[in-house]
Amino acid sequence: MGSAGGVGGSGVIYEVFRQERKGQAFQHAGSIGAPNLEFAEVYAREQYGRRQESTALWLVPRDAIDELDDFVDELGRTYHRVDGYSLKAKLKEARERAAARSG
């Protein structure tokens, strides 16, 4: 996947976040490749904004995002986490047991 010498290169990748209704949190919608911010704005409006599906958009250059993903669970102590005990799975199991009994 080498660069084609910049010919027709899309320049910057912008991550687009959209807000569906006023007051709501912005959610990641997708990304836009554009030569500069002016182009990115037009493309983002086109793809995420102009059908009244968003009240606002955030455009963030991908390079500006600082990603942390080095969360190693060294000791495997899942009981320290709030998601360590899955009620959903237990409920599903219980329902299946009940269904098997009545069936």
Partner: peptide, 12 residues
Amino acid sequence: APLLEEDVAFSS
């Protein structure tokens, strides 16, 4: 179109 993103916008 010269850019994929432009292709989508221009077709629209």
